[in-house]
Simulated assay, not measured.
Amino acid sequence: MRLDYEVSGPEKAPVVLLGSPLGATRAIWAPQIPALSERFRVIAFDHRGHGGSGVPAGPYAIEDLGGDVVELLNELMVEQAAYVGISLGGAVGLWLAENAPARFSRFALLCPPAYPAAGAQMWTDRAAQVRAEGTQAIAEATLGRWFLPEYAEAHQAEVDLVRQQLLKTPAEGYAACCEALGALDLRDDLANITAPVLLVTAEGDTSIPPETVVPLAAQIPGAHLEIIENAAHLVTYTHPDRINPLLLAHLT
């Protein structure tokens, strides 16, 4: 399945892929793309079911989402790239690190779910709710997990831009990705990851709590862990002053 994407940065520079959260498009990377594209050929893509990508009927599996990324590399004739992903995009990155190691030089994975910590049923229920009522049914609760209240109050315009991405996400695409997350368990092969991995978690993340991310650093050989204080789930968007230097240092 062909993913929609946009490219920025020098044509001959090393390639970096950017994978977004559930319910968001590649536009979520606006705080990172200018900084990264000074040094890298940046390819920001929409997962299947999101943004400009196709919306096949679900359920999806993490193998589908990861396979789409490998197909994108093939389409663009990119032999190897670095990968940065947050949330759902982070889970896709873990799968790629385990299953397509030859295609990726290194990974930066932010707030990545490795298994359904809240239980598979939660994802099944959310998928059913979104199929019945659309993403508007879960929008405010989602934004409440993505942003700390003080950030949301001080940055209403920025939060509304993210809200619009969520509201425009096709119900089937969102629900089918929920089902992929509900069936996810990538823990068994973490010890086999060979690429350098930067793991980032946010102190106030209630979507993918730090206690589910911190142990991954001990299981992935050589992984480097960073914990961002006073931050919620969408840490790339709210704390680019902390995240961008970490990404540049890890990817360079």
Rank of each mutant, 00 (worst) to 15 (best):
A97S: 12
G144N: 13
N99C: 06
A120R: 15
Q156I: 13
A97L: 03
A100R: 00
D160V: 06
C177T: 14
P101V: 03
Q129K: 12
K168A: 15
E172K: 08
T169R: 04
G144W: 05
A141I: 13
Q136H: 12
F107G: 00
P101F: 11
A120Q: 14
I138R: 03
G119L: 09
K168W: 02
A132L: 09
V162S: 02
E140K: 03
T135R: 04
P170I: 11
E150S: 14
A152K: 06
Q121C: 08
V130H: 01
A137F: 06
P101Q: 11
A176M: 06
A100N: 08
A102M: 13
P112Y: 03
P113T: 12
D160E: 15
T124N: 14
Y174R: 01
A127D: 03
I138F: 07
A102T: 14
Y151A: 02
R103M: 07
L143K: 02
A139P: 03
V162W: 02
A117N: 12
L96M: 11
A114P: 05
R126Q: 11
E98H: 03
A97C: 09
E98P: 01
C111V: 13
G173L: 03
W95C: 05
P149T: 13
C177P: 02
A102C: 08
H155D: 06
R163S: 06
A127M: 09
A114H: 02
F107K: 01
S105N: 11
T169V: 10
M122D: 07
A118S: 13
Q156H: 09
W146D: 02
M122P: 04
A114Q: 05
R163H: 06
A117C: 13
G119Q: 12
A132D: 07
G144E: 04
R145F: 06
E153M: 12
D125I: 03
A137E: 01
A171H: 08
G134Y: 01
E150A: 14
A118T: 12
P101K: 10
A97K: 01
G90F: 01
G144S: 12
E158L: 12
L96W: 05
V159K: 08
A175V: 05
Q164K: 15
D125N: 15
S105I: 08
A154G: 15
V159N: 05
Q136L: 11
G90M: 03
Q121P: 07
A154K: 15
R131E: 05
Q129M: 11
A127H: 03
A176R: 00
L148E: 15
A139Y: 03
A108Q: 03
C177I: 08
G93N: 02
L110A: 08
P113Q: 10
Y151L: 04
W146G: 00
T124Q: 14
Y115G: 04
S105P: 04
L161M: 12
W146E: 00
Y174D: 00
E98S: 11
G134F: 01
A141Y: 04
